[in-house]
Simulated scan of single mutants.
Amino acid sequence: MTNQPLSLWKPAMNTLARVAQLEAAPRPLEGRVALVTGSTSGIGLGVATELARQGAALVLNGLGDPDEIEQIRLDLARDHQVEATYSDADLRDPEAIRQMMAMAHDAIGPVDILVNNAGIQHVAPIEDFPVARWDAIIAINLTSAFHTIRAVLPRMKAEGYGRIINIASAHGLVGSPFKSAYVAAKHGVVGLTKVVALEAAESGVTCNAICPGYVWTPLVEQQIDDQAKAFKITPEQVIKDVLLKAQPNKRFATVEEIGMLTAYLCGPGGASITGAALPVDGAWTAH
């Protein structure tokens, strides 16, 4: 290590004061543009809502009924007084992703905050796993993040600010049977996060992965009902003995919790957090 004066490595007091000032601001992300994939429901919508609450303009992306999505967009824009637009880009298609990123820039402005949240799942033994489902899961859960990051990183580096948040999973840290594609993709997301963080480390751009366990969403609620019927057990038994069996705290995380953590990482307090895979899993991966 070179013998550098200590003052070169310490943040200046005016910088610390500025961080404190920004953290105290009611809308610390005012003026930022956030693109969140898979943001028309569930975790993605929770993240988009919190980013908008803190002042970020939004680019939404995801599937669903067009009228319902338009209402979500209008509600976010009205409730939080931010610009909001929507892209229906198919994240399996690199060209569609490129067009979405260009549209975001033209419609609202350059993307300062990128949240790669979109994901799909399929459960089957490897020998029975449909090849088309494997390809789709890898494309949407992993490869799309490569394409979105590749599109925004040069400008983020040039500007000296950028926040990239990849919503991975507890399955980015541990494995489970019958989820080969999902586990492989989420482990890949964690690895991609580390590489981007290292490449951008001196630029003011951070890249982190959030690794949720089970989060209470409409999709999980439906899964509980389906499994209760399939196994002829009560919904309470599905929750306790199936879904939350590996989660020591025995409770679901909420989309609001994921949103607040994302927003914190995007704000001034997250400036030195980069390359991390942050579990939000009730100590599941502490085993």
Rank of each mutant, 00 (worst) to 15 (best):
A12V: 04
N14Y: 05
A24M: 11
P26G: 10
P26V: 01
L29G: 15
L29M: 11
E30L: 07
L35P: 00
V36S: 02
T37Y: 00
I43A: 06
I43R: 01
G46E: 08
V47Q: 06
V47D: 02
A48H: 06
L51M: 03
R53L: 02
N61Q: 14
G62W: 10
G64P: 00
Q71W: 00
Q71P: 02
Q71I: 01
L76W: 00
H80R: 00
V82A: 01
E83H: 07
S87A: 06
D88L: 02
L91E: 06
R92M: 12
D93K: 13
P94V: 10
A96W: 12
A96T: 06
I97L: 07
H105C: 07
D106P: 01
D106A: 14
V111S: 01
I113P: 01
I113L: 06
V115R: 00
V115H: 00
V115I: 04
N116I: 01
A118R: 04
V123S: 06
A124P: 10
A124M: 12
D128G: 13
D128K: 15
V131C: 08
A132R: 12
I137E: 15
I137H: 11
I138N: 02
I140P: 12
I140S: 02
L142C: 12
T143S: 14
S144N: 11
H147T: 07
I149Q: 08
L153F: 14
R155H: 13
M156E: 14
M156F: 10
K157T: 15
G160H: 11
S169E: 05
G172I: 03
G172E: 07
G172L: 05
G175T: 14
F178A: 09
A181S: 11
V183W: 03
K186A: 09
V189D: 11
T193G: 04
K194D: 00
K194R: 15
A197D: 04
A197V: 03
L198H: 07
G204K: 02
T206A: 04
T206S: 09
A209N: 10
I210A: 12
P212A: 07
P212Q: 09
Y214W: 15
W216R: 13
P218M: 11
L219S: 04
Q223A: 14
Q223E: 14
I224D: 08
D226M: 13
Q227E: 15
A228N: 08
I233L: 06
P235T: 12
K245L: 14
A263F: 01
G275A: 05
D281C: 06
T285R: 13
A286Q: 15
A286N: 11
